[in-house]
Amino acid sequence: MSALGAFCDWLSRTPISEFIQITSWVVPATQTIHILALAMVFFLMTNFDLQVMGLIARPTEPNWTRRPLPWLWWGLTVLLASGLILIVGEPRRELFSWPLRIKLVLVVVATLLTVVLSRMAARSPPPPVARLIAALTLLCWVVIVVAGRWIAYINFGEEEGL
């Protein structure tokens, strides 16, 4: 068995994982929190990227490029915490999932790009390269949501590492 497979099987036998597995409301409740947080992050980031791209009106306040950041940090914290609960509840389904792996890498990429953008776009008007980065960042957020939904459908965890 692979090291990851062994880790998953160990994790799924821990008391916390067993609690999540046998308590029927934990998974749907956690998924609900996850969806609410992703709605906030996805809406704010779509809005922000389209503003930087100039496709919707940019706010006139001087600090507009920094304003979404605290919301992003809170949103990501909730998403990470709820996501972790879902992983602990079903380690094999999550940790062997390619959509999850792609999603996690893109979360890091999109977050770093957003931080870069919030500095870059503070200049008025934003440099042309900022528009390109904003388009790329928006694409990342969309792929993250898409990949998240496909965790439930693309799954090799049951065969791998056995």
Binding site: I35, L36, L38, A39, M40, V41, F42, F43, L44, T46, V142, V145, V146, G148, R149, W150, A152, Y153
Partner: peptide, 20 residues
């Protein structure tokens, strides 16, 4: 699953904009 994905992308924007 493709329709579900579209549903999630749409509802994220609905909820995000309404919550704001």
């Amino acid at each position: 699953p493709t329709l579900e994905t579209i549903h999630v992308l749409g509802l994220a924007l609905v909820i995000g904009s309404i919550a704001t």
